[in-house]
């Protein structure tokens, strides 16, 4: 018997395609569940040999939290309707011979989600999802030029997107 109606904890790892989160933890209580996901990406590049002394850094992280309602379709297949809240931050900076450029953005939003879960067995679950997110992003761009000084630009964008399933998660139940 597959543990659809039991209290279970699942850890989902994204195995294909990079989307919002790479790690996804799901707790199922009867026919409802709560979940949270995390994603992060840090890079640092230096170009010393090229003579420009270019240093580029990038820090990205995303988090989301949501509630789910589980609708069993078959013994192995679940259809899940959820509501998510998401937040994320991105900062990219590069500097070279006195010139600095820094862009940063903070996003906040959320919306309904649709997930499809397939239970391979009692322990292993595959999952994919479609997202209906409204996201507000506040961005900043700072340019430092030794000749002209510092210039700061800000902007705010609002975006509504319906994202089709692009990622496949594999989950392990315990």
């Amino acid at each position: 018997m597959l543990p659809t109606y039991f209290q279970t904890y699942s850890v989902f790892l994204m195995i294909i395609c990079l989307l919002l989160t790479h790690l996804y933890i799901d707790m199922v209580l009867q026919k409802f569940g709560i979940h949270f996901g995390l994603g992060a990406d840090l890079t640092r590049e230096e170009d010393v040999l090229g003579g420009s002394n270019l240093v580029a850094k990038s820090v990205l992280y995303d988090a989301r939290f949501g509630i789910d309602k589980i609708i069993p379709i078959t013994k192995r297949l679940n259809f899940i309707v959820g509501l998510d809240a998401i937040a994320g931050n991105a900062k990219n900076s590069s500097s070279s011979t006195g010139f600095d450029l820094t862009t940063s953005s903070f996003k906040l939003g959320g919306g309904p989600t649709i997930r499809i879960q397939y239970h391979l067995n009692d322990r292993v679950v595959f999952m994919t999802e479609g997202l209906f997110y409204f996201i507000r992003t506040k961005g900043e761009r700072e340019e430092v030029d030794p000749r002209t000084g510092i210039a700061l630009y800000t902007n705010t964008t609002h975006r509504f997107t319906i994202a089709e399933p692009r990622a496949l998660f594999i989950g392990f139940k315990f």
Partner: peptide
């Protein structure tokens, strides 16, 4: 749900210059 992009990861559907239908749901 439109699972074309997901299916492209498993089978060779990804031809350049081709766009999917706009329908997601």
């Amino acid at each position: 749900l439109n699972v074309t992009n997901l299916a492209k990861l498993f089978v060779p559907l990804n031809f350049s210059g081709l766009t999917n239908q706009d329908v997601i749901l």
